[in-house]
Each structure stands twice: as C-alpha cells, then as structure tokens.
C-alpha cells in the first residue's frame, strides 16, 4: 500500500529524512514512531505530496506520488494533529468542501459517514461550536468520505482528553476491523501504538532505526537483571567468556543469542561472584524505544 525507497528530504542544510525505506502492506495498522522532529510529519507530508522529496521514490496505492499524485491519493484519507476546519461554516459544509476536492460526493454518502462517526444532529452547527472531540470526529468523517483504502493518521489523539483518546483508539480499531482499511499511524505515544499496531518503524533524527513487528521490538534484545557485588567486574568476565553482548544502567546485561541465564550463573559462581538476583527483564515497547534513542547515530536495530 505504501512503499518508500531511499527517501530523503533536506530543508536547506538540515537533513529531515534520510535514506528511508518503508513498506506498509495492505490491511495493516502500521505505527510510525519517533520523538518530535524525528521526521514523521515530514514523511507524511511527502506521502501526501505536500512536501517535495529531495531524493528517493514514494509509491502510494501503486502510484508514484511525485509524478501521479491524483491517482496516488484518490483512495487516501488523512487526519492531522489538531484538525482545523472553516470554523465559520457548518460541519456539513466543511465536509462538502473537503470531499469536493476528491470527487463529487452525494449527500447520502455524507449522511452515512456523519452517522458512522456519531455526529448526526450536530452536522449543521457551526464548527466553532464543536468540542475537541467533535472536531476529531469531523476530521475522521472528512477522511472517510472518499471511501479510502488507506488512512494516514498524524498524531490523531493530540489534544484529546483520556476519554477522547480511548474513543479515537476504538474508532481506529473499528475502521480496521469493519472497513478493512490500511492505517498508517504516526505517534509519539508508545501506549497508543502498542495497543493498535502490528508493525512499527521507529525514526530518530530522520533515520529509520527499527522496522518490524511489535513482538520483534519487545524481544529483539532481552535484558537480564543481574545483582552482584561488583557489576563492572562481572560484566568484564562475562564478556570475556562470550556470554553477553551489552550491559546498561549498572544492573542489566544482554545475553548472546545462544546464551542462557544458567550459563551466566554458573560462570559467575565459578569465579566467586555472589549472585544476589538474576531474572530476565520483560522489555516493554517503551524500554525498546528508549534503548533505540540512546544508540549512537547510524546504528539501527534491524
């Protein structure tokens, strides 16, 4: 559904996105993670033909966005952080206007979508009277009007209260389950991505540092908590024995792919290190994300 090849964007001398390869298969909820300024919104801007890439290729729904934008975006809906509308017009009129840029939209279709997002009864009110949650629903309605196959959501829960965030999350699930949409979700809310997405890509300073499933993210590197008298000395010995690949925070070690906790314990006890505690650490997405952010520039997890 989306295929980016060696995508690069520079703003003057600053590299916003660098050598980005990304593939989002049809029917997936794909999470695009990264801190503010990591290049998520620039990537989405390029996907929608709003930002011109400096180099690389973008294909959406099989069409090159740069050369054939109209075809590429014909079946695409998008929601941006803090959705904005023509506040002085009614919700209905906003939908008519925005949908009109894609294709003629009969009133029955607008009514159907308004009902789907739960705005029936308020569609004729001016948007300036809408709450934040209602604006989010209207944003969803405008994105759904062209009957999209791909939905691009750029920080869709920004500014929503917890109830609104929950509602948006449930809506995204419904969109995926009921309408079978492919969804690209850009967010820096790890819990949101963790609950919704099957696959993720993580951007850091414009570069992709991870691309894989959530399970791969959680188990990509298993950390083991180790408490002993002299952690630094123990780590030296374990490295020398080829049992661990990394350590962090003075209490975690990362085992080699074929390493086992029992081998570590046997080695340490054999060398006279008392082992007060040793237990595999269950890695959350947050742990994984933070570990990616701490990595030296240019090093990626996958």
């Amino acid at each position: 559904m989306i295929r980016l090849t060696q995508l690069r964007k520079m703003f003057g001398e600053r590299v916003a996105v660098d050598a980005l390869d990304l593939h989002v298969p049809r029917g997936e909820i794909f999470g695009l993670l990264g801190h503010n300024g990591a290049g998520k919104s620039t990537t989405i801007g390029m996907l929608l033909g709003q930002v011109w890439p400096t180099a690389g290729e973008l294909r959406v729904c099989g069409h090159d966005v740069t050369r054939d934008r109209a075809q590429a975006l014909a079946k695409v809906g998008a929601i941006f952080e803090t959705p904005v509308f023509y506040d002085y017009l009614s919700g209905w009129r906003n939908l008519e206007i925005l949908a009109g840029y894609t294709a003629p939209t009969p009133p029955a279709r607008i009514r159907e979508v308004v009902a789907w997002v739960g705005l029936t009864g308020r569609e004729q009110s001016k948007v300036r009277t809408y709450s934040h949650g209602m604006r989010a629903r209207l944003a969803l309605a405008q994105a759904l009007l062209p009957g999209p196959e791909l939905l691009i959501l750029d920080e869709p829960t920004n500014g929503l209260d917890p109830e609104g965030i929950h509602e948006m999350r449930e809506t995204i699930r419904r969109l995926h389950a009921e309408l079978g949409l492919t969804i690209l979700l850009s967010s820096h809310l790890l819990s949101e991505v963790e609950q919704l997405c099957g696959r993720i890509a993580v951007l850091n300073q414009g570069r992709k540092v991870f691309d894989g499933t959530l399970d791969e993210a959680r188990h990509g590197q298993s950390w083991v908590r180790l408490k002993t008298n002299d952690f630094a000395a123990a780590v030296r010995e374990l490295r020398a024995a080829g049992l661990i690949t990394a350590d962090r925070d003075g209490e975690f070690i990362a085992l080699t792919p074929d390493g086992a906790v029992a081998d570590v314990v046997r080695r340490l006890v054999g060398l006279g290190f008392p082992v007060h505690e040793i237990a595999p650490e269950k890695q959350t997405l947050e742990d994984f994300y933070l570990s990616l952010m701490r990595r030296p520039e240019g090093e990626s997890a996958k």
Partner: peptide
C-alpha cells in the same frame, strides 16, 4: 496560516 491548506492538499487536487 490556519492549516486548512494541508487538509485540502491531502486530497488529490492539483
């Protein structure tokens, strides 16, 4: 300035 242009240019209009 208002941000509505981004909403429009997410559509397949040239």
């Amino acid at each position: 300035e208002d941000g509505t242009l981004r909403m429009i240019l997410a559509r397949p209009v040239s």
